[in-house]
């Protein structure tokens, strides 16, 4: 047998081994998705970055285009409208905004949540000894106008505290200076922002997590359009699978997530972002709840707050606002 015949046999054997030894991998359809972020690039969007950088989107054969939200060119980007105006769109928003959108007839549906618990928290200096909502009676609390006011009002109501017994003043800035200089006794902020700011001053503080007092909502909700659900439900499912893997990566490795974040927004302070992300992570996965899982009770409660505070005139069918079937829970 000539050497050429040996080579032919060798190549045939290798080809045969490759054909038989390699399991056939089903090819996922390639889909492009436009992801409209609710805010600018920062730590809270790190699950998106980890899903992209760690290849979870690629594994699902998805090409995800991240569209930055927040204020762009001086105008606030409405993520819901932007998503509706864009093809193959998935967006990020909050529960209240989505309920309002549905009430306004916009065909958007929530499909997952990044955070399980609301980050809203009443922050006070430790020296003021505000440890329960009852301690707010007679105090001055700075609260941003709008939804935040409705949240604290709801909490006070649920705690049987007369609304007039607590002085609520509007927050005029997003810092904590009024709290530090004693202008106010407390302020309503986020545990991931204002509370970290207070920790960064090394001043002792107390917090009242609104969700600990029954006031809870979803602030980082993943939604999509009904058109998308109609036409590409599999792409949506694959997107959620990849994104939840990104959430798990962030929980497991916050430092990596912040490195990814800085690759999108290099001007951010890495240490400050990491501190905020570390406060953010407990909100993303709470014991007994699957990552991304939403509770109908929270949706119903959110709508109830909106109804109670006049944000919504008429209740809508809240089950139309969300879909729970995109998240696989441990019970399934």
């Amino acid at each position: 047998m000539t050497s050429a015949k040996y080579w032919i046999w060798f190549i045939l054997i290798i080809a045969l081994v490759n054909c038989t030894g390699q399991p056939a991998t089903p090819t996922l359809p390639a889909d492009a998705i436009n992801l409209q972020m609710s805010w600018i690039h920062e730590y809270s969007a790190s699950p998106l970055y980890s899903a992209e950088k760690n290849g979870h989107f690629a594994t699902q054969n998805l090409s995800v285009n991240l569209i930055e939200g927040g204020f762009q060119d001086g105008n606030f980007v409405d993520p819901i409208q932007s998503a509706l105006d864009t093809v193959n769109s998935i967006g990020m928003s909050d529960a209240a905004t989505l309920i309002l959108a549905r009430a306004a007839g916009q065909p958007v549906v929530a499909i997952a949540t990044i955070t399980q618990r609301s980050p809203s928290v009443v922050i006070s200096l430790a020296e003021d000894n505000i440890q329960t909502p009852q301690d707010l009676i007679g105090k001055q609390v700075a609260v941003a106008e709008g939804g935040a006011t409705h949240l604290i009002t709801t909490m006070l109501t649920m705690q049987n505290i007369n609304r007039d017994d607590v002085t609520i003043v509007p927050r005029t800035d997003f810092g904590i200076a009024p709290l530090l200089d004693g202008s106010v006794d407390a302020l309503l902020g986020w545990i991931t922002n204002e509370n970290v700011m207070l920790e960064e001053t090394e001043r002792e503080g107390n917090i009242l997590l609104l969700s600990d007092y029954g006031v809870d909502t979803y602030n980082f909700v993943v939604f999509t359009t009904e058109e998308m659900l109609q036409n590409k439900p599999d792409a949506v499912k694959r997107f959620i699978t990849a994104l939840m893997a990104g959430v798990a990566d962030v929980i497991a490795n916050p430092e990596q997530a912040i490195d990814y974040t800085l690759s999108y927004a290099p001007s951010l302070d890495k240490a400050a972002q990491l501190r905020r992300l570390e406060a953010f992570i407990p909100l993303m996965q709470t014991p007994g709840t699957a990552i991304g899982q939403m509770s109908p009770d929270i949706w119903a409660f959110t709508q109830q707050i909106m109804l109670d505070n006049g944000l919504l005139d008429t209740a809508i069918t809240i089950e139309d606002v969300y879909r729970l079937d995109f998240i696989t829970t441990s019970d399934e």
Partner: peptide
Amino acid sequence: TGRVLAASDDAYQGRVVNRQPYFA
């Protein structure tokens, strides 16, 4: 409903534990 009616620690009174993992 998860509302804390009584507690050995006064600061825990008024809490709503319906979001806690043990509640359900």
